[in-house]
């Protein structure tokens, strides 16, 4: 289950890690390619088949939200840091609400509005949302398997 945080994850401090392992732009026509990239990077990070699917689903939901309710396009960044796989989706569109916050954690059935964010909250280990004049950035984090596990 996720733990909400008030601010998005900072970029990696290690200068060698400044080159994002994955940085990919997307729009409505490239969500399939985005999912494929996310799945490949999650698998390369050592996540299980189920968690690879979860990462793919989260990246899709965040990107779809940017397409449907944000600018219509956006950018995915993925990297590993401090034992987590970070998936950061940002778009320069208008925020749906002001301020910072976390994805909704309890959405009863039937769930329609913001169901994608509810999924994000359900399957990520940590996540955060930052809304501002420059757009919206959501960072979802998935714990990496312990070394040797």
């Amino acid at each position: 289950m996720m733990t909400g945080e008030q601010h998005p994850s900072p970029p990696p401090r290690d200068p060698a890690a400044r080159a994002w392992p994955l940085e990919q732009h997307f729009d409505a026509g490239s969500l399939y390619a985005l999912r494929a990239s996310a799945a490949a990077h999650a698998a390369a990070a050592g996540l299980s088949r189920q968690r690879v699917y979860d990462v793919t689903a989260v990246v899709h939901e965040l990107a779809a939200k940017a397409v449907l309710h944000g600018a219509g396009h956006g950018r995915l960044r993925m990297w590993t840091q401090d034992g987590y796989l970070h998936c950061q989706v940002s778009d320069p569109g208008p925020a749906s609400r002001n301020g910072t916050g976390t994805p909704p954690r309890t959405v009863p059935w039937p769930a329609e509005h913001d169901h994608g964010l509810w999924i994000v909250a359900q399957v990520t280990d940590k996540s955060s949302i930052d809304h501002g004049p420059a757009g919206t950035t959501v960072t979802a984090r998935f714990a990496l398997p312990a070394a040797g596990a």
């Binding site: 999912r35 699917y53 793919t56 689903a57 899709h60 939901e61 779809a64 039937p110 769930a111 329609e112 169901h115 994608g116 509810w118 999924i119």
Partner: peptide
């Protein structure tokens, strides 16, 4: 291979 939240809801509904 993949189903998103909205379509999962449609199937479930």
């Amino acid at each position: 291979a993949f189903i998103d939240a909205r379509c999962s809801l449609m199937v479930a509904d």
